[in-house]
């Protein structure tokens, strides 16, 4: 903010002249970076492929139509597996993330110098690895199938739920916790009476939100052999059986819509 004076009284402008110049310079540098990046991308792109994209897309689309509807009867089982992978994975993640979150939250951790960094590392490690990569690793370790999928979803979700939960724990009101402490309650009782009721709404919201995400994530785990409808999808793509691929994509879309509707309902009921 710049205030100066002339004959008519004080003058106010948003920035000083120096500030104005700095702002313009920042815009100029930004534009230059975009231009350079574009030319780099352009050099490494084979534009003929891009120009032919609409034709290729139309070609692929025509092979998908009509979808092989008779195939849909074979999809109930893998869809059910997908649903179970998401639900069990979320449940396991929640059970593990609760203690991790209490260890990670500044106000409930048993030790800021040892336990908290470990808990934060667990959260970061779990979050930094995508569930598809978890699945790749787990298929090698526990073998292909639904179990690997459940674990992959769980491992990825621990960090997500743990992070949101420990942030909720750090935001609670202090006075009720002090009041419960002042009665001579043990630390476990302070957690269950003073802290837990305050984070219940956040906990419920996080669970439903993550379950909803996990339904979507578990549809692709089959691509690496970790069970669910992705298994059928990858098989059909490998066989270039595009009319079946179309049916699977429609089934996945329907599942996701149903899960979003369900989680919206549950969240609505919670608030």
């Amino acid at each position: 903010m710049a205030v100066s004076k002339d004959d008519h009284g004080p003058l106010w402008r948003r920035r000083t002249s120096k500030g104005d110049f700095a702002a313009w310079l920042a815009w100029l540098i930004g534009a230059a970076v975009v231009a350079v990046c574009f030319s780099l991308i352009s050099d490494k792109t084979i534009w003929e492929f891009v120009w032919s994209a609409p034709r290729e897309a139309a070609d692929l689309g025509s092979r998908m139509i009509p979808p092989d509807w008779s195939y849909s009867t074979q999809l109930w089982r893998p869809l059910w597996d997908t649903f179970n992978i998401a639900t069990l994975g979320t449940a396991i993640a929640l059970i593990i993330s609760v203690p991790v979150a209490f260890c990670a939250a500044r106000n409930t951790t048993p030790s800021t110098s040892v336990v908290r960094p470990i808990a934060l590392f667990v959260i970061a490690a779990s979050r930094s690895i995508n569930s598809l990569i978890w699945a790749l690793l787990l298929v090698v370790i526990v073998g292909p199938g639904v179990f690997a999928g459940v674990l992959a979803i769980a491992f990825r979700s621990i960090g997500f739920c743990g992070k949101l939960l420990y942030e909720a724990i750090e935001e609670i009101d202090v006075p009720p916790v002090e009041a419960v402490t002042a009665t001579g309650a043990s630390s476990g009782q302070v957690l269950t009476y003073g802290v837990a009721p305050q984070i219940m709404p956040a906990f419920a919201g996080i669970s439903v939100f993550r379950w909803d995400i996990n339904i979507r994530e578990s549809t692709i785990l089959g691509l690496v052999g970790a069970g669910g409808i992705g298994l059928q999808l990858s098989a059909s793509i490998n066989n270039l059986d595009w009319s079946r691929v179309a049916v699977i994509l429609i089934a996945i879309l329907a599942t996701v819509i149903v899960s979003e509707w369900l989680s919206a309902k549950i969240r609505g009921a919670l608030t």
């Binding site: 006075p175 009720p176 002090e178 009041a179 309650a185 009782q189």
Partner: peptide
Amino acid sequence: MIFQEYALVERLTVMENVLSGRLG
């Protein structure tokens, strides 16, 4: 101890809040 902003656990019932005085 009695507190300034009551310091009740808002999401618990009156009875649970009163009984929390016996937690020790």
